[in-house]
Design a protein around this nucleic acid. Structure first.
Lengths: 104, 104
DNA sequence: TATTTGTGCAACCAAAAAGTTGCATTATAT
DNA sequence: ATATAATGCAACTTTTTGGTTGCACAAATA
């Protein structure tokens, strides 16, 4: 399924999972232990995160380790950066206009 | 209502609204014109965006102009940055370890 | 003054999201 | 060989989300 990174990080539990796995690769049960929802709830969060490429899974025997893929987060900071650029370039931004004038 | 910036930018329509308003302040009807959903649908999106501080409204006669508040987007890029830091500092990141070794 | 324009509110609806429980499957450990 | 541990799948429920329509109301305009 095509998933959206923005939608994936909208959920606080999923953001927490990303933080945990960024720190250290963890298998699904280990991730589950840190939360007080069911294993399946976490499993589904992880599924969403893998479907949008924020996590990858490495099978190791019967365990599946989650690894974070930082590259995909670039889409997020990229969008923020894009907004900032638009904002900086707007003509009717008075402060900005005065600043530019002052720098000349 | 307490709103979450991450949840607010999860919706593509809302991200588009932010982009539009970053470029130029617009009243609600002007925003609506760019989309093919009802005025109320857009009104609700704008409500969510104001509730989490990404937009502010300036009343001008009977019109209400939306202005973007870039500061609030810092929470997003800040979180991404935080994740990146955690990732960079992890001890079991082999590539990272080798790079550090090489730089010494 | 009458009409149009820009907006807000309430009630409602359908689809998606987030969660649960129970059962099945496979690898490891006893 | 059996028990246990780690996971996947399916069915189901509840809540949230994104959308609609109809009505109301104040400001601007003809």
């Amino acid at each position: 399924m095509r998933r959206d990174v923005f939608q994936a990080i909208a959920d606080p539990t999923r953001r927490e999972i990303i933080g945990m796995v960024a720190h250290q690769s963890l298998n699904i049960n280990s991730v589950t232990e840190k939360f007080d929802v069911s294993r399946m709830a976490i499993y589904k969060h992880i599924k969403i995160l893998t479907e949008c490429g924020l996590l990858t899974i490495k099978q190791q025997g019967r365990e599946r380790y989650c690894e974070v893929k930082m590259e995909r987060l670039a889409e997020v900071s990229g969008w923020v950066e894009e907004c900032r650029k638009i904002w900086d370039n707007r003509l009717d931004n008075l402060d900005n206009y005065l600043n530019k004038l002052q720098n000349k």
